[in-house]
Simulated scan of single mutants.
Amino acid sequence: MGHSQELSEFKHGTVKGCHPCYKSIREISLLLNIPRSTVSGIIIKWKQLGTTATQLRSAHV
Rank of each mutant, 00 (worst) to 15 (best):
L30G: 15
H19F: 12
L30I: 15
H12V: 07
V61P: 15
S37T: 10
L56P: 05
A59E: 14
I42T: 08
H3D: 12
E6F: 01
R57H: 09
I42P: 01
R26C: 06
W46Y: 03
H60P: 08
V61I: 03
L32T: 10
H60T: 13
R26W: 03
K47F: 05
K23M: 15
L49S: 07
K47I: 11
L56Q: 10
V15R: 06
A59H: 11
P35S: 15
I34P: 07
N33C: 12
I28Q: 08
C18R: 11
I25R: 09
R26I: 11
W46S: 08
S29R: 07
Y22T: 15
H3Y: 00
R57L: 14
T38R: 05
H12P: 02
V61C: 10
K47P: 01
Q48P: 01
I34D: 10
E6C: 08
T54W: 11
Q55W: 10
M1A: 09
T14E: 02
K45N: 04
A53D: 01
T14F: 03
L56A: 10
K45Y: 05
H60E: 13
L30C: 15
G50S: 08
Q48N: 12
R26N: 01
L32M: 08
G13R: 10
R36C: 05
E9C: 02
L31T: 14
T14C: 04
E9N: 14
K16G: 02
P20L: 08
L31R: 13
S40M: 12
S8I: 00
I28K: 05
L56C: 00
L30P: 06
C18Y: 12
K45C: 10
I44W: 04
H3P: 02
I42H: 10
S24I: 09
I44P: 01
N33D: 13
M1Q: 00
T54G: 02
G17Y: 00
K11N: 10
L49C: 02
R36D: 09
K23Q: 14
I34L: 07
H19A: 13
H19P: 06
I28V: 00
I42V: 13
A59R: 14
S24P: 05
I28G: 00
A53C: 06
I42K: 08
N33F: 02
R36V: 11
S4G: 03
C18K: 09
G13C: 04
R36T: 11
R57C: 13
I25E: 06
S4H: 04
G13T: 03
V15E: 00
E9K: 06
I42Y: 03
Q48R: 12
G41C: 01
L30D: 15
L32C: 01
R57V: 07
K23H: 14
Q5G: 00
E6N: 05
C18M: 14
S24M: 05
R26G: 01
A59T: 14
V15Y: 04
A59Q: 12
K11H: 07
S29T: 03
Q48I: 13
W46V: 09
V39S: 08
S8K: 03
R57T: 13
I25G: 00
G17F: 02
G41Y: 04
S37P: 06
K23D: 14
M1H: 08
E9Q: 12
H12D: 10
G13Y: 04
L49A: 11
S8D: 01
P35R: 00
H60C: 12
E9I: 10
G50W: 07
W46M: 07
E27I: 00
G13Q: 05
H3T: 04
G17V: 06
I43Q: 05
L56K: 06
N33L: 10
H12Q: 03
L32V: 09
